[in-house]
Design a protein around this nucleic acid. Structure first.
Lengths: 196, 196
DNA sequence: GCGCTTGTTCACAACATTGTGAACAACATC
DNA sequence: GATGTTGTTCACAATGTTGTGAACAAGCGC
């Protein structure tokens, strides 16, 4: 992963707007891009989504490409993927309809957790089960591998799966006021745990 | 990120052990590697750590390289980084002391959260503040960018920081029994939230 | 139809990442 | 010391990722 925290000082290529506000907005897009990149998407997805989320009007791919100073081909591909994930929506169903951001991103995060994280934990769990079985078969003396360590890790994968299952079913409040209370409860609870 | 869920069927290069148990253990190492790769480390880190964690005896770099079927140079570099992160420990302080895994990985996870995630959120927050200021300066009519959207996102970054702060101070129980109760409490709480 | 804009596709360039092998340095043992 | 083993470093190959530009397709307005 490349950390792109510094803003770019390169000369813009063409119709890229350079007024104070646009520059600031582009910085936000870059920051969201870096953030989202860390979570398994590509930076360009976050940049496009952030721009659409901040724009008052729907935007075409050309407008997005110009604003973000990237090629139209890059926007085209990324937009198709955003659409697939339901993170972006065309404002009509004809070809050239401009796009808006879908602000409620939780369903997508939930999908990502289900799709990737679950698979990773599950394959670790299966591998551990296989290894435990193999240890019990073998009659190494002295034993090369610690079966109780394996059982510990196996238990950890099961715990992780429990967590993921719960997270996947979690309903995060959509509105900010609801979220505030939700956050407060959760924070208080976690702080209690921190004191253990 | 490359998903390496299938096990390798290539012919081993040299002294790589191929008995049933070793193959299973190697599968576990690969699974842990894939998992940890997703969390911002390299797969090789996870593989080495898992191997040391499962091994009953401390291992030298050569033994690790042979078992995992990779070059010594790769192990050397990765081991240095693991040491730096405190995920691995030499069993003595002379040069050729074999290594063992540090099982308590929470401090490192905490460091990662502080180091990367915090920076990412913080730079987004700063960028948003800048953009909000720029909007208030400008007198666009009609406005091109939605300042209330920005405020919403700003609030989200602050919430994320609250969470991260709490997580960073969190004490996760070291022992499995303690962890069981901890997990149970947390799960119950989260399930409560899910019902909101 | 014709021109113009928009979106898509694809081959490729630029770059980053991961792992290798060979040369070397640091030790241990004889 | 000589010898062998272990760990480190570095230039590099192999591969993957990200973004480009040009060619093309699909619409829209005339």
């Amino acid at each position: 992963m490349t950390m792109r925290l510094e803003e770019s000082t390169e000369a813009p290529r063409g119709r890229t707007p350079t007024d104070r506000l646009s520059v600031r907005v582009r910085q936000v897009c870059d920051a969201v891009g870096s953030f989202i990149e860390y979570w398994g998407f590509k930076a360009i997805h976050g940049r496009i989504w952030a721009l659409l989320a901040l724009s008052t009007a729907p935007m075409t791919q050309v407008e997005v490409a110009d604003f973000l100073d990237v090629s139209r081909s890059l926007v085209s591909g990324a937009m198709a993927e955003l659409l697939e994930h339901g993170l972006v929506r065309p404002t009509a169903d004809h070809r050239n309809a401009p796009y808006v951001a879908v602000v409620d991103v939780w369903p997508t995060i939930s999908d990502v957790l289900r799709g990737r994280e679950w698979m990773l934990v599950e394959s670790a769990r299966v591998a551990l089960e296989g290894a435990i079985e193999a240890v019990e078969m073998s009659s190494d003396m002295p034993p090369r591998f610690a079966v109780e360590r394996m059982r510990f890790l196996l238990r950890m994968t099961e715990i992780a799966q429990t967590f993921l299952r719960i997270l996947m079913n979690l309903r995060v409040p959509r509105k900010l006021e609801g979220l505030g209370g939700w956050l407060k409860d959760t924070a208080k609870f976690l702080q209690g745990l921190a004191a253990v």
